[in-house]
């Protein structure tokens, strides 16, 4: 199951809630304001640890729009085509 997060972790509990429910192996895709979790800061360490069990992706266009160039180690960027590919492989759980 693909988990998408579209809120800044500073604004909403979507990020921390998702991490409580996600099963091992399931990917996370950060989109819209969700990409702020991939920037250095308070949640960087958490995001590093998450990657031991869950691959983390961030939508390139949303990163670029927000001037985020320095990503937490291991976070992979995808474009919209990559987003679609992830959806081909998994059902989707959007943490709105």
């Amino acid at each position: 199951m693909l988990h998408t997060i579209n809120k800044s972790p500073f604004q909403s509990d979507s990020f921390t809630s998702c991490l409580r429910f996600i099963q091992p192996g399931d990917p996370i895709l950060l989109i819209e304001d969700g990409v702020y979790a991939a920037a250095p800061g308070k949640y960087a360490q958490t995001l590093k640890e998450v990657q031991a069990k869950n691959p983390v992706f961030a939508l390139a266009g949303d990163l670029a729009a927000r001037g985020i160039t320095n990503l937490v180690d291991g976070v992979q960027t995808v474009d919209y085509e990559g987003f679609v590919e992830l959806v081909e492989q998994h059902q989707v759980n959007s943490w709105l």
């Binding site: 199951m1 409580r20 429910f21 099963q23 059902q91 759980n93 959007s94 709105l96």
Partner: peptide, 17 residues
């Protein structure tokens, strides 16, 4: 528990937030 609900989530065909 969140783990139990998390497992149920993965069994779904559709999740509607």
């Amino acid at each position: 528990t969140s783990t139990e609900i998390g497992k149920l989530m993965t069994e779904q065909d559709v999740i509607v937030p």
